[in-house]
Amino acid sequence: MRRAGILPTLLLLAGFALLYLPIVALVVYSFNDGRLVSVWSGWSLRWYRALWDNRQMLDSAAVTLKAGFVSATLALVAGTLAAIVLARAGRFAGRSGFAGLVYLPLVMPEIVLGLSLLLLFVELDLDRGFATLVLGHAGFSAAFVAVVVHSRLVAVDRSIEEAAMDLGAPPLKTFLWITAPMIAPSMVAAWLLAFTLSLDDLVIASFVTGPGATTLPMRVYSQVRLGVTPEINAISTLFVAAVALVILTASLVNKGLIPGRSNGDSA
């Protein structure tokens, strides 16, 4: 194999330093004992303790996790359906309009999505709260699910599904027994993506949620507006750790846990 040259190596180092140094600094300063974020005054867990005593933060964390779980599950179902239609239904009237609707949330700024979803809920006279939060998040993350699942689905040899039908399995059974196991890694990845999208989202949540369902990013945002505080560093560190854990799990699932994909040979 080629050896890395000096210039590419420097580029890589500089590029990834740019991406990661701010986060590393944030993590380190979350263990800082002092109140000033820029002055180091020794290791301490005091900001994590402060976080633990902050009931509001903990409640919001619970709301955020629950909303992420439910909305990711809804988005997985809806997004997978859309991906199946795009990859398997062939031509039908309005197909390009359908594809446009599937991908639209990907190319719309969050503020547009949030505002339009809110106005819809107002128009339907739905009380804003946990339910609207979940619907709003599922609505936009389903688009990401569709992209991830679709890209795997088009790579699956269609004749495998045909073989199942040829051997007597009706369409739904074919999907559950044959297609779903083959695209399972992408469905796991898509669910995780939808989950983290929901966890991260500030803008859409600010529009569609209501009293009693304030999410963690909304709390963090209102604190950040007041200035940089070590407590935010602590909660951000927990966030980053959680995401890293999720990513690690996902890559393990993709690599080791799905039999036949571990050694990278093509079946």
């Binding site: 040899d157 004749s159 495998i160 045909e162 073989a163 199942a164 040829d166 051997l167 044959i178 196991p181 083959m182 039999p259 036949g260 079946a267």
Partner: peptide
């Protein structure tokens, strides 16, 4: 029943 050109064996 059909035997497929790609064999279309269920990989899992």
């Amino acid at each position: 029943n059909m035997m497929f050109q790609s064999y279309a064996l269920f990989p899992h």
